[in-house]
Nucleic acid binder design. Structure first.
Lengths: 120, 120
DNA sequence: GCCTGATGGTCGTGTTTTTAGACCATGTCG
DNA sequence: CGACATGGTCTAAAAACACGACCATCAGGC
């Protein structure tokens, strides 16, 4: 067992690259919201509740850039912009569903662990 | 910021609660590293590469608190501390594996999308 | 005509989070 | 003695983020 496995994440590492985009506190939440259907910018603001305008815009731009989300602008007044999951995004969310189901099933244990830790 | 104004995500929302802990740039990376086996603090530093000591400590503490990770301290000098996935953590990582495999399979498309976005 | 409201953001500023680096205790090796 | 290794913590500086103001535009009420 030579120690050549110390560097776990290689430079062009897909896991690292995708996780860096996903692991930013908001991306998964936005994708989850969109997985229920197309939403406008203000719908996402209201739905998520505690995201700032700036971060929502930034998160959406990145998700659009990576091809997870589709942005459709309507030339109306007041302006209307609709966001929805692309096929790639839907495909990704199928994977995430497993995680969400797991969270649902194990949330109780986690909360219990947290409480126990705080008291021990 | 009002911490309980979510509309889509209800108050005792498992998805939101777990995602908030997981979606923090480092947790998934640490869990991924530990999924290959037990590691010491310094192994994790080297393996992940660009995490700061403070964030690694903080991330590990939270992961331990939630019960994903087990911390074993050996009374030696210099001190030795081993981190490993708990059964709960392993169970969670089974779900994450799907995401990782997906990332592996779709990384190419994502990079292509990014490039296309930057040019158009 | 004028004021108000709605939309999808951007901008500037102040607050929070993260980083980089020094530092600590302690025993081993040279 | 003096350097080295470990697992952190503490502090000051940098980066990320939140909050409110603001923009253009048109519809509807007055």
């Amino acid at each position: 067992m030579p120690a050549d496995e110390t560097v776990i994440f290689d430079q062009p590492c897909p896991i690292r690259d995708v996780l860096d985009r996903i692991g930013d506190q908001w991306s998964l939440l936005v994708l989850e919201a969109l997985s229920h259907g197309t939403l406008r910018y203000s719908d996402l603001m209201r739905g998520i509740g505690d995201i700032s305008k700036q971060m929502l815009a930034k998160t959406l731009r990145r998700l659009e850039m990576d091809g997870f989300v589709t942005r459709k602008v309507f030339a109306e007044v007041p302006p209307r912009v609709e966001y929805s999951l692309s096929p790639l995004g839907r495909s990704f969310m199928q994977q995430v569903q497993g995680m969400i189901a797991w969270a649902d099933a194990n949330h109780r244990d986690i909360v219990l662990n947290r409480r126990a830790y705080e008291q021990g």
